[in-house]
Design a protein around this nucleic acid. Sequence first.
RNA 1: UCCGGAGUAGCUCAGCGGUAGAGCGGGUGGCUGUUAACCACUAGGUCGGGGGUUCGAAUCCCUCCUCCGGAGCCA
Length: 436
Amino acid sequence: MVTPSAPHVYLQDIANWDGKEITLKGWLYNKRSSGKIRFVMLRDGTGVIQCVGSIKDIGDEGFAAIDSMSQESSLTIRGTVRADERAPGGFELIMSHVECVATALDEFPISPKEHGTAFLMDNRHLWLRSKRQVAIMRIRHCIVKAIRDFFDENGFTLFDPPIFTNAACEGTSTLFETDYFGEPAYLSQSGQLYGECGAMALGRIYTFGPTFRAEKSKTRRHLTEFWMIEPEVAYMDMWGAAELAEDMICFVVRRVLETRAEELKVIERDAAILEKIQKPFPRISYTDAIEVLKKNGHEINWGDDIGGDEETTISNQYDRPVFLHHFPAELKAFYMKHDPENPKLALGFDVLAPEGKGEVVGGGQREDSYEELVARIGEHGLKVEDFSWYLDLRKYGSVPHAGFGLGLERTVAWLCGLPHVRETIPFPRMISRLKP
RNA sequence: UCCGGAGUAGCUCAGCGGUAGAGCGGGUGGCUGUUAACCACUAGGUCGGGGGUUCGAAUCCCUCCUCCGGAGCCA
């Protein structure tokens, strides 16, 4: 039991308890021993600390308890906090009492040594206990919170789109089909069309939810289930949406730097690189980008899609995110508004993250003309009746409007400097990963 | 779907025609300041599956499976 003089303390607050007797509750991270002394590395989810036990303080009983526990056994330790130069976190705990809560019934699969990613992914449920994964999850949470705060503080309303959808917006090949009481239903691959309904109702909204893509992509940037944030604003044009994306990204980066410096250190992410993420981001048109790519030895022509290697070439020219805008309209989705000054171009943009991290945002202005949109739906081989509700937005008081989609996992991977998105979400879903 | 790469102890890997190996992890013992502790001993294997070549295959050939990376598509 916890005595009033030895309250339960989390390791993140340990600096406030120097010289005091406290209780720690956690798991055995590692241990070392000598004949008459025991070193216990305890983690509690907020940090790791070395606890020192000498035979005169904890007796044979304490030694026996420690010796019976293997890695990841759960335990509580009472002791006195002591600042110590030699300790990695600056503090140690001098044990006065140790109690095993539950011994690990088997050898913990993930030893303190190196492991391959396939093995770690098979043990994702346990891998999440490691210092590095804990730090990444904390930063992910920070980013989620910052995004919500940014929109909430700027007059936006959270607007949740459905996950079951009936329409095959952009062809069924990339959608997961489910049996919905005998009818086919598809897991949402974007909340945007619903977000547009919200913008017409509430003015400024953002969606924040999971989306699903059945595309058989096997790359470091793809998940089949990922989280997307999609703001949508009535009476906003393409450049307004671009500025919104810019402000949001800067706000999020600032928040991570201010509140997650420790976690960035744990994952060895150079904060100086993130300090450079400031307005304004360079803006380069698709047409100009093609010229840049040609000069850099890429075999690409106007009208071709810009692939991963090309994106890297462009983003490597800057130390901050870059806007790519005014793509050829035929490369983009049916709802994208065409440039009135050049109908071959779409009023859309992508944001490429620096360091070759690729596209983190895609957005632009939506087609607001009823006639144009009907024609566009036909051109894309889609059925007008599937989009009757969407067309109603143009029928009843259509206005210029714009928005964008931000991929959460790609953003986390970029800000954390991770090579692969699989470590950015607790349980990544990929083409060959459904378990755990 | 296509193009590469890899499957050997619980994990990370070496061995690449001639007796199945190391480090870590596990177990046992030792050590009063260790830091991925150290020292000694010890247990642990259908060398991804199937077929073939050979006196002999983890090793060479064929085939299948799985995973990893990339392409396409996208956030």
